[in-house]
Design a protein around this nucleic acid. Structure first.
Lengths: 184, 184
DNA sequence: CAGTATCCTGTCCGATACTG
DNA sequence: CAGTATCGGACAGGATACTG
């Protein structure tokens, strides 16, 4: 966590995301939670993390709305940590990270894959535009400033668009695309 | 970076990815690089990062094969930092992070969006399986250990699959799916 | 302009001991 | 079992000064 230049104050959604889950253990905790782990000692055994650190990370994720701390036993009092909707939306990030790691950091072959529960077949994660279905890592797409961008961001992106012929798309209503989006 | 329990030694592709790009500035540098920034002072102005730290992060990313340091001027000697293929493959992670941040951390509206260069329309990033086109954040898919998983990983995932009825898919050849994959 | 060299601080983390 | 309390170390990051 950066002290003075806290990312919380940055408007960029990527920076903000990092502020929420940018720490190593946080991501790994989410990974394990998606795998069904819920309890303190499960996480601890899985990650081999010091208990005080685990407490800290867990609390941080609860504070940031990624875990919900829930009582599963009254006496003795016991809690479990379950993923919130916000955290469940984080899964694409995790799976993208997984796919990237498998491609570039696992020359011996994958140790973790995404599978179709029904037939066990390995899935191959690709990021596409929901409406057109086109792949987002093509040259057809780029990042651009949105309506809430600061002047600083606009300048950075204005610079970047020079010579690349990118149109500067901006100040569009948030829901501009939703109208004709084919439901889910 | 974790000292003793370096993620480098972990087989999990997510942990390995974090070891490469798990630090805040690294991700933000990649974001800027995707936006076309290449030079030291461009990054520095954009991020408001201390020059020594910028040097450190840049070198780290070069070492890890995400940036290529290239001479663009002989005298005086000047370098620029350009994305490698490995880094370009990282884009889905960045865009997923961006989409998540926009959804959950930008109540005022987005400051950064993904757009179709052709018509300026906002894209909506969704992670799907390349072959079936089905969304990966549905309940149909899960993570499972691959052939190179350690016993530790298998145990964690064996536990997790209890009660959820997940089949344990394992020891399949790396290329099992490729055979009938409709070329890109 | 593109860095390098120093110094300092914050805090993330590990180890360990202890508790209901 | 599920944590809390305390201590110490490593290092990322900030500030600043300096160089070709």
């Amino acid at each position: 966590m950066v002290a003075k230049t806290s990312f919380e104050t940055r408007p960029c959604p990527i920076a903000r995301s990092l502020d929420d889950v940018g720490e190593w253990w946080s991501i790994l905790l989410l990974r394990d939670a998606f795998q069904g782990l819920k309890r303190f000692d499960q996480f601890q055994k899985s990650l081999e993390i010091a208990p005080n650190i685990l407490t800290r990370r867990l609390n941080s994720l609860v504070e940031r709305g990624l875990f919900e701390k829930r009582v599963y036993c009254e006496r003795p009092l016991r809690h479990e940590y379950v993923l919130t909707a916000k955290a469940r939306d984080f899964r694409p990030v995790l799976l993208s990270l997984l796919a990237w790691g498998n491609k570039h950091l696992a020359p011996e072959g994958p140790s973790l894959v995404v599978v179709d529960k029904a037939d066990g077949r390995w899935a191959e994660p690709v990021l596409v535009d929901r409406q057109s279905g086109r792949q987002l890592d093509s040259d057809d797409f780029t990042m651009a400033t949105g309506p809430m961008a600061t002047e600083r961001m606009r300048q950075r992106y204005r610079f970047a668009s020079q010579g690349s012929g990118l149109p500067l798309v901006d100040n569009r209503p948030v829901d501009q695309n939703r109208e004709e989006a084919p439901g889910k």
